[in-house]
């Protein structure tokens, strides 16, 4: 068991996501930075779908009630294990009673705490990812005890990788043209692709809004399926990028589609961070 002493700013259980029920309106969910999340499981020899704690902006303080192994990936939250600094991407044995304290993120904003065997919280519709109205709780609260799985992993014998030195500040995000992109005029395309854009304070697991708007007279579309990473444009020109907890359908024009890699990079950005879209050739 892992006890949550302080829950941090926004901490939730996440895994690969909920794939099977989108035709019933169920969002995909899952770790926002899938790359960091998967790397954590690889480092612990876990199954790829083993659930982890996704910690945003400021991390939690937790106490381990049993001996196990953990690894931190993603943003650097200046973690301390019993007051000793703990680096990301290094699988570490923890003992019963050990306390892990995560601080404020300074490179990136989301950190994954993966644990040997994974967190074994309730599984609903094929996933443990927390989402309002599907799991009992939509995020982690303090004082809860989280059950964990078993594992024979030994950090002495596990996989070792060089700590990947991600520069989460890099603004470039690769995109494909969305279904309505071709309807934009040249100056509108330039606004979207040649300018440095930035994230507004309205950013959460459902969607990230940009500060910049584009003036347009695009027609509304018939409600259609959307994906995480779809950039939509509302009638007043607000640009919204859908994230993993987004609705499964949308009715706004779809201008761009972020690549998976771009979506994972975006997940590490926060209010005021700069982004710049780079259009990739179409996949035809």
């Amino acid at each position: 068991m892992v006890e949550i002493i302080q829950q941090g700013l926004y901490t939730s259980i996440q895994d690969l996501g909920r794939f099977e029920y989108q035709e019933y309106g169920v969002p995909l969910s899952g770790a926002l930075d899938q790359q960091a999340f998967r790397m954590g499981n690889q480092l612990l020899n876990n199954p790829l779908k083993a659930a982890a704690l996704e910690c945003s902006f400021k991390g939690p303080k937790v106490r381990f009630h049993q001996e196990t192994c953990i690894v931190l990936t993603g943003a650097d939250m200046q973690a301390r294990l019993n007051n000793t600094p703990l680096k990301n991407y290094i699988p570490t044995k923890v003992m019963e009673g050990d306390v892990l304290n995560l601080g404020t993120a300074f490179n990136g904003c989301r950190t994954y705490l993966n644990i040997a065997g994974g967190f074994k919280t309730e599984k609903v519709l094929g996933s443990r990812s927390q989402y309002m109205g599907i799991t009992k709780e939509e995020r982690i609260n303090k004082k809860v005890l989280l059950p964990i799985g078993t594992s024979t992993f030994d950090p002495e014998k596990g996989a070792h990788i060089h700590s990947p030195n991600f520069d989460y500040k890099k603004p470039t995000l690769e995109v494909f043209a969305g279904p309505e992109f071709h309807l934009l005029k040249k100056d509108q395309k330039d606004q979207l692709l040649k300018k440095i854009l930035s994230l507004s304070e309205l950013n959460n697991r459902m969607a990230f809004r940009l500060k910049e708007k584009i003036q347009h007279k695009l027609p509304q579309i018939w409600t259609a399926p959307v994906l995480p990473g779809t950039l939509q444009c509302t009638p007043d020109g607000t640009l919204i990028i859908l994230m993993r907890d987004a609705q499964v359908t949308g009715g706004y024009p779809r201008l761009l589609q972020l690549t998976d890699d771009a979506l994972e990079r975006l997940a590490q950005k926060k209010t005021n961070d700069e982004i710049r879209f780079k259009l990739l050739p179409s996949l035809e």
Partner: peptide, 22 residues
């Protein structure tokens, strides 16, 4: 194909690993 989702006049087709060529 792994799954399909619907809109009023559209279908989104999610491809499986067996789809090697678009």
């Amino acid at each position: 194909v792994t799954r399909c989702t619907m809109g009023y006049k559209s279908l989104m087709i999610h491809l499986s690993e067996k789809a090697t060529s678009l």
